[in-house]
């Protein structure tokens, strides 16, 4: 049950990331260039995850996944899904556009997910490392 719950959260949060990346303009999390395809992918991921979870087995049974364990699994799963999304988007965007990971001037001053508006996760990390090196010199 724990693994099933982890997969449910992983897939549904993957869908959520794809959907929210559009209004939040977080291009660094996008798998697709077209927002409509991305919306459809996100919705299908959420519906698919819930559909699979609730049709594959009876979920109204007494399980060991309770309270704090459920919270821990949820947090672990959404972070894993976020890292997976950011890494996959970095790879996909690097393939589509070889300049995609190269940060533009000035973006190194952005922090956190704000960075993902202009570049991918890899791009953001590279930008931070470059800035650190530059500051040391």
């Amino acid at each position: 049950m724990s693994l099933d719950y982890f997969i449910l959260v992983f897939l549904s949060s993957l869908g959520v990331y794809q959907i929210v990346a559009i209004p939040a303009k977080l291009d660094g999390l996008c798998f697709f260039k077209h927002p409509i395809i991305q919306y459809i992918f996100g919705i299908l991921a959420i519906i698919g995850a819930f559909g699979w979870f609730y049709t594959s087995s009876d979920r109204n049974i007494h399980t060991s996944v309770e309270g704090s364990q459920q919270l821990g699994l949820f947090l672990g799963s959404i972070i894993a899904s976020y890292v997976f999304t950011a890494v996959l988007a970095s790879i996909m965007q690097a393939k589509v556009n070889s300049k995609g990971g190269i940060p533009r001037e000035g973006k190194q001053y952005d922090m956190g997910i704000e960075t993902l508006k202009k570049t991918t996760l890899f791009g953001g990390i590279m930008s931070s490392l470059r800035k650190e090196r530059k500051d040391k010199v």
């Binding site: 979920r59 996944v65 704000e114």
Partner: peptide, 27 residues
Amino acid sequence: RLLVNDFFIPLVICLILLVLWLGYSDR
């Protein structure tokens, strides 16, 4: 049966919190 489930509504609530966490463009 779906609404009473230990996972369904808690997860939907958490996903809404996730949407709020990331869903705004304005910093």
